[in-house]
């Protein structure tokens, strides 16, 4: 039982790490980035390519992943999302175009990684880090599991605080509420958007590296599998709420774990989709979302 709870928390932390960046970009600058999973994977993949040559310690690897993720994300913003937002005067049209653009762009890193790895899973077996497991009697926990739990919750707290207290964070939230007024108040929308995308991408890269350590290896397609789970977590918690994503990720992981433990597991994929659907029907703002939501 205690083990199941710990497992659910770990799974939830993985979802959370992945979803944090996505939620941040969606909730503030209104970018639902479908290429998030690709960035996540490609950052982990870049770290893999480097660790094959030089054996790096885990902090260096995480930093590397975060940097690659941030760089890719900024590139994406400059080359694709900015032009879309500049051209489309209507915010809904831009939303849809960003969605499709993201889907298209997501294919590019995937194709490169698939080509190089031939879709064989890759890991960091050459890295200067080994997973060790501690048996505490009632529960078994590994060092990487602890690292993921701490990082996920720590980062969520940090970002939550940043949005609430720090100046750029406040400005960002202002954009999320009403971008026009925020601009009039002297908020530099472009710079903030770039900053947000960099943070979101950095989170994706960091999550990718951590996940690869935790799972031992990931495949180029791994990012896609996480995308819909992250959606479910965000929708469940409410777009734009950091506390919401935390709760959403944990609830999703909790339900999935319960279903896995009590049944043969073939219905697990239905949980994420079912939750998205039900939540949108019953409470489109999510558990912790802002009350303002676009509807008809």
């Amino acid at each position: 039982m205690a083990q199941d709870v710990l497992n659910a928390l770990t799974l939830g932390s993985l979802y959370l790490l992945f979803a944090l960046g996505m939620s941040l970009a969606w909730g503030t600058i209104g970018i639902l980035n479908f290429a998030h999973g690709s960035i996540f994977m490609f950052a982990a993949f870049s770290a893999h390519l480097i660790v094959r040559e030089v054996s790096l310690p885990i902090p260096a690897m995480i930093l590397l992943g975060a940097l690659v993720g941030a760089a890719l994300s900024v590139l994406l913003q400059v080359l694709a999302f900015e032009p879309i937002q500049r051209r489309a005067k209507d915010h809904r049209k831009a939303e849809l175009q960003i969605l499709v653009g993201g889907i298209g762009i997501a294919i590019i890193p995937l194709a490169i990684a698939q080509r190089i790895t031939k879709s064989v899973p890759f890991g960091y077996s050459n890295g200067a880090f080994s997973v060790s497991t501690y048996d505490l009697g009632f529960v078994r926990v590994s060092n990487i599991q602890l690292l993921i739990l701490v990082t996920a919750l720590g980062l969520a707290g940090l970002i939550g605080w940043w949005l609430r207290a720090a100046r750029p964070g406040l400005a960002l939230r202002a954009i999320g509420v009403d971008s026009e007024v925020a601009t009039m108040m002297g908020v530099d929308r472009r710079r903030l958007a770039l900053l947000t995308m960099a943070v979101a991408g950095g989170l994706a890269g960091l999550a990718g590296v951590l996940l690869t350590y935790y799972l031992g290896s990931i495949a180029p397609e791994t990012g896609d599998a996480f995308l819909l789970k992250a959606f479910a977590a965000i929708i469940l918690g409410g777009v734009g709420s950091i506390l919401g994503v935390v709760v959403g990720a944990m609830v999703l992981a909790g339900i999935e774990t319960v279903v896995l433990v009590t049944t043969d597991g073939s219905w697990t994929p239905a949980i994420a989709f079912g939750l998205i659907f039900l939540m949108l029907l019953v409470r489109p703002n999510g558990l912790f979302g802002r009350q303002e939501v676009r509807r008809t």
């Binding site: 939303e95 929708i235 994929p269 239905a270 989709f273 998205i276 659907f277 949108l280 029907l281 676009r294």
Partner: peptide
């Protein structure tokens, strides 16, 4: 009738979920 309240991306997400849910149903 069910999704009458939703619009925009939210409606998109709800209907994607509906489509994917059917896929799971088919598997099971």
């Amino acid at each position: 009738l069910l999704v009458a309240r939703l619009a925009g991306l939210y409606l998109g997400m709800a209907t994607i979920s509906f489509a994917l849910l059917l896929g799971v149903l088919a598997t099971n």
